[in-house]
Nucleic acid binder design. Structure first.
Lengths: 126, 126
DNA sequence: TTGACGAACGTGATAACATAACATAACGGA
DNA sequence: TCCGTTATGTTATGTTATCACGTTCGTCAA
């Protein structure tokens, strides 16, 4: 039982082709009666806890998780500076390298942020 | 010739054990006569361009680059949620994996953000 | 049914982070 | 000197996120 606002936010992100900011979501969901940032942030917090949504730090934005069972916190993103799309990547080799880096310095990782910024294939070829 | 404000900011970050926010820097540098956020942000922008400072996305904060020769944009950070320290890591294997991920989808990477959040060794052992 | 409780929700104010727009000063070369 | 460029300063504003408080609603047990 996702909660009404969570469902609104989830639907909006599902329809969007790119990550959305909290205030962008708010604008969109005013139609549904949402009025304050906090309503959005609370919904996002829960969706993130449930692993359904990722926060993209370098955009201060939020994206649907495309991998139903991602251990949340182990996804990488390639974010196009031109078209704004963020493609989510799960890569075992990356996870191994990150674990090794942490291990070497006795670091106990709780979550990881991996974000590549640049041009996606479509935008690079023009 | 670094510019006066850049030098102030650089000195402040050098003295700090952990990444500092822009407004935190501002508070500190009021003693030196700095008055507005923009003075801080401009100095930070230049220091980042020169590769002397990194922006830590997940903290909205800034840290001195400890590797004089970092190709800027290829550093990883392990950030302790308890003590706030951020240790900078340069790892060839990580760079290879990130290049491979980008290559696989034809992504042209301009910069990369890699931030581990968790507990550092000292803070984990208590 | 009632009431106690917790989870979700609503609202206004405010905090924290960042930039726009415009003006002024400092410097170096033609 | 004149010009262009770079660094600087200041006010106002834009953007992102949270606090504090109160209300609604469903569930469960007496």
């Amino acid at each position: 039982m996702p909660g009404r606002n969570q469902q609104f936010v989830l639907d909006a992100l599902t329809r969007s082709e790119r990550p959305m900011g909290a205030y962008e979501l708010l604008e969109l969901l005013r139609q549904e009666g949402l009025r304050s940032p906090l309503q959005i942030y609370r919904a996002l917090d829960r969706l993130i806890e449930e692993g359904l949504v990722h926060r993209i730090e370098s955009l201060s934005a939020f994206a649907l998780c495309v991998h139903s069972e991602c251990t949340h916190g182990r996804a990488a993103f390639a974010i196009c500076a031109n078209c704004g799309r963020a493609s989510e990547v799960h890569d075992p080799a990356l996870e191994r390298v990150l674990r090794r880096i942490a291990r070497r310095q006795g670091f106990r990782t709780k979550s990881a942020t991996v974000e590549l910024s640049g041009l996606c294939e479509a935008c690079a070829h023009r």
